[in-house]
Each structure stands twice: as structure tokens, then as C-alpha cells.
Amino acid sequence: MAYDKFTILTSSAVPMPIENVDTDQIIPARFLKATERTGFGDNLFRDWRYNTDGTPKQDFVLNNSIYSGKILVAGRNFGSGSSREHAAWAIYDYGFRCVVSSFFADIFKNNSLNIGILPVQVSAEFLDKIFTAIEADPNAQVEINLPSQKITILATGESESFDINTYKKLNMTNGYDDIDYLQAMKGEIETFAAKSMY
């Protein structure tokens, strides 16, 4: 599915300083029953966000109106667990375009890049600096510059560079995806398949 191009994103950020946030928390399995890719944002972090009677839990960050923005900042090992792309869809559908953490689970990182969310991995120290900046000012702006691979806390001017491979970067900045790429090399794949023993 095509997604919006990603170049420079400047936004306030939502802090979630919890480690090992797994995909069952991001979107619990019972909400995976749809056959379409819409509406998952409503159930993002469902069991942390709502009581069993459906009322919002006041102490959860997404229910705290002082925080908003297109960037989610989370503790280390974000997105561990299941391969459900629904987790990335829910984050995208809710309105986030970027997740910042000091460490990402592999499949989550792949899934995010495939659907147009940029996972930005920073050092543990820089992650703390972002949390501190948001604590001081919930509206603190963070700039994610994909072309120059740099994340900056605008209020303090502190910045750090982040990694992304050239291929994925090109995809994200152009809004292409892997399927476009693979379709363009069908002939080469046919030839390869003809030699395969399975």
C-alpha cells in the first residue's frame, strides 16, 4: 500500500518510557479479526488505554491531552513479540509517523518501514534527553530529518544522527515500497526460480 513520502518531520512527541513494549500491548490479538486495513488506531494500546468498561484510563499517556504529536518516544526493545503488521498499522492509523527508541525488535522495524513509519534508533543517553525535554515542556518540538539522517530536540539544539540503509531511505523519501521494486525484476526472479530444487 502506498504511503505518504517522508522527508522532514517536526512535531511534539508523546513519551512512553516503558521497556519491552510488545506487539500484544500495541494491538491485542482480539482486535486482529478484520479483513481490511482500517480502524486499528482506535484500539492502539487498547488495554493500557481503556478500562474494561471502555472508559479511558486517565493515567495513560494517550489519554493525557497535554501530550500530542506525530512522534512516539518509547523505552528500549519496542515492538517485540508477534509479527503482526497490525501493530504498525495501528500506530500509523492513530497518526504517528515516527517511533523513537533506543532499540527496536527486528520484525517491527521491517513492518514499520514497509508501511511508512520511520523507526529512529537513538542512544540510551539521547533517549533520556528527549524524555527530559518533554518533561520540561510537553510541547517540545523534535525534528526528524530523514535526508540528513538526523534527529534534533529543537528547544535545546541537541541532536544525534541515526542509521537507515540507502535503499529504505530512498523508498521512504519517495513513498515507494518493496512490491514496486520486486515487480520490476520479475524476469530475474523467474530465471532464479527455474533453478531452485524446491
Partner: peptide
């Protein structure tokens, strides 16, 4: 394991 985009 892979995501749904990769299934496609």
C-alpha cells in the same frame, strides 16, 4: 516470521 506487506 514476516509482516503482511511481505506476505503480499
Amino acid at each position: 516470521g514476516i509482516g503482511t506487506s511481505e506476505v503480499e
